[in-house]
Computed example of a mutant assay.
Amino acid sequence: MVLALEIRELQKVDEWKMAFPVMKQLRTHLTLEEFVNLVKEMQPQGYRLFALFDEGEVVAVTGVAQQLNLYYGKNMYVYDLVTDEAGRSKGYGEALLSYIHELARGLGCGKVALTSGLQRVDAHRFYEEKMGYERKSYAFVREL
């Protein structure tokens, strides 16, 4: 059986809403309204939302933005990457992240960077063993 996989950039509110059930699995603290409002606010900063569809259903979602900084130069930052729980280990995350690698290359980025919560051990294994990422730093946060 050939799978009908498609990756699309989600640019409209209705498309974001369609992706929310998958994104909610990563960003459990967000309501639909908060999610839509944040995506709207982040767009002027370069945030872009992409989804991988299998047979017309959203099975993986990523949010990225092109950045420029002193330590990585021109890079693509992955803010969010999540595969629907029911579709994990089917290659969806790999396909979507590989797409982002090509998008970044095409935009002249030299690196793709991301952070991942300490508790996400399976995700770390995926990034390092499957996708060739190196663990380079710790991220620190202070609540205000």
Rank of each mutant, 00 (worst) to 15 (best):
L5T: 14
E6S: 14
I7Q: 04
R8G: 14
E9Y: 00
E9V: 09
L10Q: 14
L10W: 00
L10T: 11
V13E: 15
V13S: 07
E15L: 07
W16C: 08
K17Y: 01
M18I: 14
A19Q: 08
A19D: 10
A19K: 04
F20T: 10
F20A: 05
F20G: 08
V22T: 14
V22L: 01
V22P: 06
M23Q: 07
L26C: 08
L26F: 11
R27P: 06
R27G: 08
T28I: 09
L30H: 04
T31K: 01
L32V: 14
E34I: 08
E34V: 10
V36L: 02
L38C: 08
V39F: 01
M42A: 14
M42G: 11
Q43R: 14
P44L: 01
P44A: 05
Q45C: 09
Q45T: 15
G46V: 12
F53G: 09
D54R: 09
G56V: 13
V58Y: 01
V58K: 02
V59E: 06
G63D: 02
G63I: 07
A65V: 09
A65K: 03
Q66K: 09
Q66Y: 00
Q66G: 11
L70G: 13
L70D: 11
Y72C: 09
G73W: 01
K74V: 15
Y77R: 06
Y77Q: 06
Y79M: 05
D80C: 05
L81F: 04
V82H: 03
T83N: 02
D84H: 15
E85R: 07
E85P: 03
A86K: 12
G87R: 07
G87K: 07
G87Y: 05
S89W: 00
S89E: 12
S89V: 11
S89L: 02
S89G: 07
Y92E: 03
G93I: 10
G93A: 10
E94W: 00
A95L: 06
A95F: 02
L96D: 11
S98G: 14
Y99K: 01
E102V: 12
G106I: 08
G106P: 05
G106Q: 10
L107R: 09
C109L: 05
K111N: 15
V112G: 11
V112R: 02
A113R: 02
A113S: 12
A113M: 04
G117D: 13
L118N: 12
A123M: 03
A123G: 14
R125G: 13
F126D: 07
Y127P: 09
E128P: 03
E128D: 03
E128A: 10
E128S: 08
M131C: 07
M131A: 10
G132M: 03
Y133S: 09
K136Q: 12
K136T: 15
F140W: 06
F140D: 06
